[in-house]
Amino acid sequence: MTNSEPRARIAGAGKRERLAEAAATVFHQQGVEKTTIADIARAAEVPLGNVYYYFKTKDQLVQAAIGAHARTAGEIIAALEQLDEPGERLRALVRGWVAQRELAVRFGCPSGTLATELDKRADGLDRELAEVMRGLLGWIEAQFAALGRADARELAVALLASYQGISLLANTFRDPEMMANEGARLERWIDSLR
């Protein structure tokens, strides 16, 4: 899941929200372990001392970043829900992913890379992020079900797995066209399922 305008979202928000959005962005770009609280404060344009008023630990910033991912997913779903037909919603989701291919080439999928990093820890934050991704998976499943597909769950997993896989490959090979080509294939696949 991606969002092409993190800076615009950060600029119009309060300090806590700016810090959460900045944490999501900086963790995506640098990874959790390499990111300092000062990096996040700088990205959010918040004095370092103010960060500790809102977040006492880096793990609390990770949790806030997960919340930012949840808000982004909710915004994406709300925008897609404005479309009339479930197949068009799914194709628009794929087009949104493809539109973010340069970001994926540089850093991978924001949620996917964070999930991979958090999986190496034993603090439960990985499960919180899994809930965010489970929400998107459920929405995708509902779209396939609305298309009359009895295998909606399997199709939803296949679509999300295709996106995560192509994000990884595009990042590994630094090739945005891989993602564009897979996006076109996924749109044809969605059309074929009616």
Results as ranks from 00 to 15, higher is better:
residue 80 L to E: 09
residue 89 R to G: 00
residue 102 E to K: 10
residue 82 Q to A: 11
residue 122 A to T: 13
residue 141 E to F: 11
residue 77 I to H: 13
residue 144 F to S: 04
residue 130 A to W: 14
residue 77 I to W: 05
residue 155 L to I: 03
residue 115 A to V: 01
residue 167 S to H: 00
residue 153 R to P: 02
residue 96 G to N: 05
residue 78 A to T: 13
residue 171 N to M: 15
residue 154 E to A: 14
residue 134 R to D: 02
residue 84 D to Y: 05
residue 132 V to E: 02
residue 76 I to P: 01
residue 109 C to K: 12
residue 102 E to N: 12
residue 121 R to L: 12
residue 96 G to F: 01
residue 79 A to Q: 15
residue 81 E to Y: 07
residue 124 G to D: 03
residue 79 A to R: 15
residue 120 K to N: 10
residue 87 G to Y: 04
residue 86 P to C: 03
residue 146 A to T: 12
residue 176 P to K: 09
residue 126 D to Y: 11
residue 145 A to G: 09
residue 86 P to S: 12
residue 161 A to Y: 06
residue 90 L to S: 04
residue 119 D to W: 08
residue 142 A to T: 14
residue 81 E to T: 01
residue 162 S to D: 06
residue 120 K to G: 06
residue 137 L to T: 08
residue 131 E to L: 09
residue 82 Q to C: 09
residue 84 D to C: 04
residue 125 L to H: 10
residue 169 L to I: 09
residue 175 D to F: 06
residue 145 A to S: 10
residue 145 A to Q: 13
residue 115 A to Y: 07
residue 170 A to N: 05
residue 174 R to I: 06
residue 168 L to F: 15
residue 118 L to H: 00
residue 92 A to H: 14
residue 140 I to H: 10
residue 153 R to S: 05
residue 175 D to W: 00
residue 94 V to A: 09
residue 153 R to Y: 08
residue 104 A to V: 01
residue 153 R to D: 06
residue 110 P to D: 11
residue 99 A to G: 08
residue 125 L to D: 10
residue 85 E to Y: 09
residue 96 G to A: 04
residue 149 R to S: 02
residue 78 A to H: 03
residue 110 P to K: 13
residue 89 R to C: 04
residue 76 I to Y: 03
residue 165 G to I: 04
residue 114 L to W: 05
residue 159 L to H: 03
residue 106 R to H: 00
